[in-house]
Design a protein around this nucleic acid. Sequence first.
RNA 1: GGAGAAAUGGCAGAGUGGUCGAAUGCGGCAGUCUUGAAAACUGUUGAGGGUCACACCUCCGGGGGUUCGAAUCCCUCUUUCUCCGCCA
Length: 423
Amino acid sequence: MLQLQAIRDHKDTFIKALKKRNIDGASLLENVLDLDDKRKATQTQLDATLAESNKLSKEIGLLFKSGKGQEANALKEKTGSLKESSKQLGEQLNSIAEELQNLLYQIPNIPHESVPAGSTDEDNEEIFREGDIPTLINDAQPHWELAKKYDIIDFELGVKVTGAGFPVYKGKGARLQRALIAYFLDKNTAAGYTEIQVPHLVNETSGYGTGQLPDKEGQMYHVGDDDLYLIPTAEVPITNLFRDEILNEQKFPICYTAYTPCFRREAGSYGAHVRGLNRLHQFDKVELVRVEHPEKSYQALDGMVEHVKEILRELKLPYRILRLCGGDLGFTSALTFDFEVFSTAQDRWLEISSVSNFETYQANRLKLRYKDENGKSQFAHTLNGSSLALPRVLAGILENYQTAEGIQIPEVLIPYCGFDKIE
RNA sequence: GGAGAAAUGGCAGAGUGGUCGAAUGCGGCAGUCUUGAAAACUGUUGAGGGUCACACCUCCGGGGGUUCGAAUCCCUCUUUCUCCGCCA
């Protein structure tokens, strides 16, 4: 959520920046400021009414104490109309505040100045590429064929038990998943992130805190009886750990990593691009979350990018990094780098990590603040990134590491797997 | 799931209708003393709105009510604790 003061101070810059998202911010921001003016005016009126009524109440109290019941009762009459008008003003204020809140919820984050304009993923800017694309054997197969051939992932069984998009991992497939999770967590903790385990269901307030609600209402699984949401990413529970917190500046940087399954309804997805592991309703992910001092957040973002790079280098997977354009940028993000691994057998790039700086956008919703050197409360910056999302890494490994004799396990994973080949 | 108790500032904990945004202790910050530190002493120390700055307003788990006036009384929800039941 954008800060009102920031909108006031940088309206024109914001309108220009929102254009990169193909959003006409002019009337939107104008509306917000108008409503806020209205809110202030109503608040002032209400405050004055309450002040008057507080004053009278005190006088009445004193009169009763000094035994002047008559005079006190006379004053009581006066408070009636004040009560009535403060009630009305209060209702007015509430409805204005609610309208303002709803409007603010609809405005996405302001893109960072480096974000290119654009509308689709084709406008994303490739900024880095590394790793050799292997030359595969003649009858190279996509991962869903390999999964069946080596009996390591069973999509049909998942359909039977739950539905499409809920695969069952078997044998060495399951072990490889576990190996990846352990390997990622080890890399992350070695880099200074604290490992935590968080709930996989969150309440509505948490959904609003990180911005999944109301923007992506239909994308989360909702447990109606208990009014809870299955997490679409560990970002939600981890970041909400800091909801309503006022941190000491010395606590920065806060670095957490967690493994969780992620649940996404993916309403509207279809076709060949969702085959196999490419798009699932339930998948595993190891996530990084950082809470940072505003002055350090972009440095932190670069650090996260470097960290993910190192992991992909170790896995020896060919990948590229994209700077997302305005149109592809997530609702709450100011700047996002996507990592894509090249899936040789499918001949396409698969997104495996998304690293973002949300600046104060989430912090404002979360009321996540810190005390600066002057003792004033300021909003912190939040960041997160995948390190990494499992299914597509798995797809990448299966496809890029396939040989006529079976699937070679990347060197760094062998100690975690306990085997070096799937055959 | 059943019965009972509770929810107050960073923490502990007083406060049962008016002068309570809230005693006291601890912690934090600043200072005195000290070569320095500790101890001791003094001061200061919740959040939000509003204002150039004040004034002023709101907040004692959430919501609603009673009253001229609510941390305090009533209703309701949530959470926590104790006991019982069930259970990985």
